[in-house]
């Protein structure tokens, strides 16, 4: 049963037929894991907390630095040097005390993900490197959880919901990781702060839709966004029968560290 305070807090979404009291209870019972508390994790966590998603897991081993603040809007100048998880938890508790924030002040690894992911309903990709993205994708596929992908660079972003067998996984689209160093990171290439804001808000929207069971999630569709032209394009993406993790004869059946070129800071 919703409390009097909850009825007031969530009134604007409870009134919608697609949500209602039942939907709000689904959100409050929902458990969402965010891998990363940076540019994508900021808007994702803020909106999910405000909507009353009852449990948010936030995984990040990094601390807040000055150059983060241009886009990582959950962190403040006073937070520089603090763990991103602690900074995020404090803000989210302030936004909505209904939400339980569980922090993992560590990077995603082959050891911790198989322990953590099964405890959640939805996993959201808020990370900043391709190796971690493959790792989280594979862990989500093996655990049977929907994985809401998001990535950004310069003025561009893309997002999709990877949820086999309903649609492809990240590895169906991109079977092999590019060689280390082939793709510039945000650190080298730059990023406009609003781009992760916009992609993160789409990821949060998809998470809410999945928890409510309404609408058409971005399963089998990849959304591409370009800020300079303001083009928003959706392209159909299909499953790959030969996919190493979700295909007919998968070769990845558990997470092995040698399969992932994780950045030094993840394995250190």
């Amino acid at each position: 049963m919703l409390s009097e305070t909850q009825i007031h807090r969530y009134a604007r979404q409870i009134v919608m037929p697609e949500v209602g009291g039942r939907g709000q209870e689904k959100l409050l019972a929902g458990k969402v894991l965010l891998v990363g508390a940076g540019g994508l994790g900021s808007p994702v966590s803020i909106y999910l907390a405000a909507a009353g998603v009852g449990t948010l897991g936030i995984m990040d081993g990094d601390t807040v630095s000055l150059s983060n603040l241009q886009r990582q809007i959950i962190h403040s100048t006073d937070d520089i040097g603090r763990p991103k998880t602690a900074s995020a938890k404090e803000k989210l508790n302030g936004i909505n005390p209904d939400v339980t924030v569980i922090t993992y002040t560590e990077y995603a690894t082959t050891e911790n993900l198989p322990q953590i992911i099964p405890q959640y309903d939805v996993v959201i990709d808020c990370c900043d490197n391709i190796a971690t993205r493959y790792l989280v994708n594979d862990a989500a596929v093996l655990a049977g959880k929907p994985f809401i992908y998001g990535s950004i660079l310069r003025f561009e972003g893309q997002t999709a919901v990877f949820y086999p067998p309903a649609g492809p996984c990240y590895r169906c689209l991109f079977p092999e990781a590019p060689p280390p160093g082939a793709v510039p990171s945000c650190q080298e290439a730059g990023v406009l702060g609003v781009v992760p804001g916009l992609i993160g808000m789409i990821q949060a929207t998809e998470a809410i839709k999945l928890l409510l069971g309404v609408g058409e999630p971005l399963v089998g569709r990849l959304l591409l966004y370009h800020a300079l032209t303001m083009d928003v394009v959706k392209v159909a993406v299909s499953r790959n029968k030969q996919c190493a993790v979700c295909g007919e004869a998968p070769t990845i059946t558990s997470l092995a560290a040698e399969n992932y070129e994780l950045p030094d800071y993840c394995t250190a």
Binding site: L2, I7, H8, A11, R12, I14, V15, G20, G21, R22
Partner: peptide, 14 residues
């Protein structure tokens, strides 16, 4: 408003 309707809606849901 809108709590009047929200409470009515919640009662009907049950």
């Amino acid at each position: 408003c809108p709590i009047t309707f929200v409470k009515t809606k919640l009662a009907l849901e049950e």
